[in-house]
Design a protein around this nucleic acid. Structure first.
Length: 200
DNA sequence: ACCGGGATGTTCT
DNA sequence: GAACATCCCGGTG
């Protein structure tokens, strides 16, 4: 099947519906492309873990805009993380892209991520995949449907898995019991669960 | 393998 | 000040 960009209406639904359907779609960035193998849904209205939960701020404005755009935020003062904006204009929601299986541009990704020892380390985390693909602040608000800023999501004919693992989200401290993380079963690029810091 | 700690901007209390 | 949708490196077993 010839690759096609996803239509706007694909994104204009609840993030928890869009997220598992994004598995096996292809994210294109400045440095290359990768198959989406891990995602998390964040609902801006009812979900205290969402950046948009407290309302519209300069940082979260993109999430309140039209669906199909990229919401890019700066994490821990070090990394960029990329989300796909969902739902309709005025209602916030997003899907965090957590891991990719590299497809093309692997050489450029290796240059962009010198710390990656193996190719499976290139895109196996939300900060890693942005560094590998060259996604940063300049892509916040970019339209994935028109691929305006060099970023886009396409369907190349690989269906979303019907046996994706559905579990709780990673790295948050509220709503930790909500099962809004999905990943491709057995894929080596899926991020490792962060080590629990020792509690007092 | 596991663990501790550092980096470091933005947002919120 | 503290928390944060993270990642990397170095020490120890």
């Amino acid at each position: 099947m010839k690759p096609r960009r996803l239509p706007r209406r694909f994104f204009a639904r609840d993030p928890a519906v869009v997220a598992p359907e994004l598995l096996n779609k292809v994210l294109i960035g400045p440095n290359g492309a990768g198959r989406i193998v891990e995602v998390e849904a964040y609902d801006g209205t009812n979900d205290p873990a969402s950046h948009a939960y407290r309302g519209l701020t300069p940082r979260t404005a993109v999430m309140f805009g039209p669906p199909g755009h990229l919401y890019v935020y700066f994490s821990y003062g070090v990394h960029w993380c990329a989300n796909v904006v969902c739902r309709h204009d005025g209602v916030a929601g997003a899907v965090l892209l957590r891991a990719l299986a590299p497809i093309s541009g692997v050489e450029a990704m290796r240059v962009a991520r010198p710390a990656a020892r193996r190719d499976r380390d290139l895109c196996s985390g939300p900060g890693k995949l942005c560094q590998a693909l060259g996604i940063d602040r300049g892509h916040d608000g970019a339209d994935l449907v028109t691929a305006d800023g060099g970023v886009g999501v396409v369907d190349d004919g690989v269906a979303a898995p019907d046996d994706a693992v559905n579990t709780t989200r990673v790295g948050i401290s509220v709503a930790t019991d909500v099962p809004w993380r999905w990943y491709v079963r057995g894929d080596p690029n899926v991020s490792r669960a962060p080590r629990r810091t020792k509690l007092a």
